[in-house]
Design a protein around this nucleic acid. Structure first.
Length: 426
RNA sequence: GGAGAGGUGGCCGAGCGGUUGAAGGCGCACGCUUGGAAAGCGUGUGUAGGCUUAUACCCUACCGAGGGUUCGAAUCCCUCCCUCUCCGCCA
């Protein structure tokens, strides 16, 4: 949520910056300032009336105590009440309008976010490692997974439908090893505290991080309870500190959380239908940080480095991409994607997305910090990034470490998690 | 799911229709005291919104949430949520 004061005072700038996401993005701002002015007007009237009412009511109390008649005053207060109700109603309606408008306006892109309208204009920041030397026609992860008995999508479709997978045998063990390896790295080497949160969350949490009210159709919702399945651990972990004031000296607060994630993938029909790249249910280790505003962009760089450390340890070739304004997520001010090399597709595919949300989520979720030497509490900046998506990492391992005979070489750091297993073969 | 108890400031805990944003205590901050510390004494110590150059004053709201009764509600009534205890069920 953007600051209404900022919109009030620097409307032109906000318009310009929002429209970097695409023409017309700032349209919702148009009437906002005027509605807000009317809101404050009604509020002021109501408050003046309430003040008068309070004084008179106290008078009534005094008179009654002295056994005197207070009928005239009581009638007057009744009259004021009618007016107050009207003002309150008006102010309430206007406030609801302002809030719902604000909830549907995305974050302002950072100055360092590149210009551009879509994915094709994202800017490559750096590359790491090299493409694997494969001197045969590489198989894709589905062929490899099925022939080695690691994946069973046919039966998954029978059990649940399309975009679901069963990981089997050494495939299931490999997925588990990847999760374990990522969690250990992030908690033991990169300084994150582990959290294992619920995957069902309430509406307030989803409003807090920005999935609601605008993106309800992307979420799985329970029929009989007001709960949703999380699309990412960002939701429960960021909301862990919703409505809290954190002590300044605790910042930055850093959490790593492994959860299942659930996405309806509405509107992605026909995209990545083969294999397990795009699933309704997938595993992910998420990194979330709460930081002081002045550090958030430095913290974003570190967050990216922490996510990269997993790929580097596994010696997987990847590149870092800075998303352009048009490709930026709703709540983000700046985002780096990590894209891992997939030999079968001869391209880089997203495996992590690391974002700085500045104070946008913090304002929605009311997450603040207060310095030890008093002063006003201020909104924190929130960040998060995948560290990493386990299903896609599974794909990358299969494809990049495949050998001519169809077997998979297990990267050394993973071997301890698989009882010393060095190769998966049929 | 059934029965009962309860949700008040950072914490504990009073208040149960009238100057109560809320007694008292603890904690915390600052000051005095001290060689230093403790104790003691004093002062201060919530959030949001409005107004404002102002994180000064002033005003409004907030005692789980939302409604209602009343001139007036933390206090009375209704609905919902959450916590605890017992029973049932269950991993």
């Amino acid at each position: 949520m953007l600051d209404i004061k900022l919109i009030r005072e620097q409307g032109e700038r906000v318009h310009t910056q929002l429209n970097r996401r695409g023409p017309g993005t700032s349209k919702a701002l148009d009437q906002l300032v005027e509605i807000d002015a009317r809101r404050r007007d009604a509020l002021n009237k109501s408050q003046t009336l309430k003040n008068k009412k309070k004084t008179l009511s106290a008078e009534v109390g005094k008179l009654k105590k002295q056994g005197q008649n207070a009928d005239a005053l009581m009638a007057e207060v009744k009259q004021i009440n009618a007016e107050t109700d009207e003002c309150d109603g008006k102010a309430g309606d206007l406030e609801a309008q302002v809030r719902s408008t604000l909830l549907n306006i995305p974050n302002i892109p950072s100055d360092s976010t590149p210009e551009g309208t879509d994915e094709s204009q994202n800017r490559e920041v750096r590359k790491w490692g090299e493409k694997p030397a494969i001197d045969f026609t590489p198989k894709n992860h589905l062929e490899l997974g099925e022939s080695l008995g690691l994946l069973d999508l046919k039966r998954a479709a029978k059990i649940s439908g399309s975009r679901f997978a069963v990981f089997k045998g050494q495939g299931a063990a490999l997925l588990r090893a990847l999760v374990q390896f990522m969690l250990n790295t992030q908690t033991r080497e990169n300084g994150y505290e582990e959290l294992y949160p619920p995957v069902l969350v309430n509406e307030d949490s989803l409003i807090g991080t920005g999935q609601l009210p605008k993106f309800e159709e992307d979420l799985f919702k329970l029929r009989d309870d007001k709960l949703y399945l999380i699309p990412t651990a960002e939701v429960p972990v960021t909301n862990y500190h919703r409505d809290e004031i954190l002590p300044e000296e605790s910042l930055p607060v850093k959490y790593a959380a492994y959860t299942l994630c659930f996405r309806r993938e509405a509107g992605s029909y026909g995209k990545d239908t083969q294999g397990i790249i795009r699933q309704h249910q997938f595993d992910k280790v998420e990194l979330v940080k709460f930081v002081k505003p002045e550090h958030s962009y430095d913290e974003l760089e570190k967050l990216v480095t922490d996510a990269e450390s997993i790929l580097q340890k596994l010696k997987l070739h990847y590149r870092v991409v800075s998303l352009c304004a048009g490709d930026l997520g709703f709540s983000a001010a700046k985002t780096y994607d990590l894209e891992v090399w997939l030999p079968s597709q001869n391209t880089y595919r997203e495996i992590s997305s690391c974002s700085n949300f500045t104070d946008y989520q913090a304002r929605r979720a009311m997450i603040r910090y207060k310095s030890k030497d008093g002063g006003k509490s201020e909104l924190v900046h929130t960040l998060n990034g995948s560290g990493l998506a386990a299903g896609r990492l599974f794909v990358a391992v299969l494809e990049n470490f495949q050998q001519a005979d169809g077997s998979i070489r297990i990267p050394e750091p993973l071997q301890p998690y698989l009882g010393g297993l060095e190769v998966i073969s049929s």
